[in-house]
Amino acid sequence: MAVIRSTPPAALRDSTGVPRATAPPRRRSPARRGAVGWLFILPFLVVFAVFLVAPLLYAGYLSLYTKGLATGTTFAGIDNYTRAFTDPSFLKGLWLVLRFSLVVIPLQMIVALVAALVLDEVTGRLARFSRLMIFLPYAVPAVLGALMWGFLYSPSFGPLEQISSLFNVQAPFLLSQGNIFYGLLNVVTWQWSGYYMVIIYAALKSIDSSIYEAARIDGASSRQIALRIKVPMVSSAFVLILVFSLIGTLQFFAEPQILGPIANGSVTPDYTPNIYAFNLAFAYAQFNYASAISFALGFVVFLAVAIFMVATRKRGSIFT
């Protein structure tokens, strides 16, 4: 930790430089300038080392040990990993978040894309207002979003039930064991679609509109323009969104954690890998195994994203 304390002041001294008077009239040599480049990224590198590299290494280290309630800590080698990848709790949670990703990501993309395309087409006050309102849920913490939807789902006080009862039908309880998948799907879609919509919308706005004119002259309809020109032109925005929603969904935690207590046991302590790791560490005091689960989850996410990047062949867009 001493390193952290001493480096930023050093960075300060160097980068602010001494008064111009002593500086050479011409700029620094390229090598010298390279050193300045390092100084600019130095604060980030420090944080990166302390809060990313070190925890990763530490998790790796912790995961090689095991500690039982009745025994002390012993070296376990890769036992925790063989256990993790045969642990039905972990695998079930992993399968759930993968399944969830497969449904929620396309759903969000479609909502976001359609909304963005419509907003790109329609102008005026309604469009501006809609854009903001659709984006609004992004500003609501996931915890509160889940709480609000939990209330709305309530069979005793929720509007869903009240509206259904007008037609003499019983609304489905969206947190029951069979339905909670959809209940969560709705919460997540509500929360993030607007954010993605804004990204796509901004990308659409940056397209040179003369392309549309040319297409129109060639007799293309609005729909054709949307599908053949606009969508391909914003595809790199898709890649970005996909990567983020994939990373986000695989780490699913807050929403099921908050909805759990009102979901009649549908949210088990191993519902998602993150919830499982949290409970292992903080309810069952198994930090070593929890670290292994965290590490394994991180690995799976990394792998999934990497596979996805290769599959979409958009490597150039992120790997500059």
Binding site: R5, P8, P43
Partner: peptide, 14 residues
Amino acid sequence: AMSVLALVLGAGAC
């Protein structure tokens, strides 16, 4: 800004 950062990190380390 950098001093704040240094302070933050420094205080943390301290």
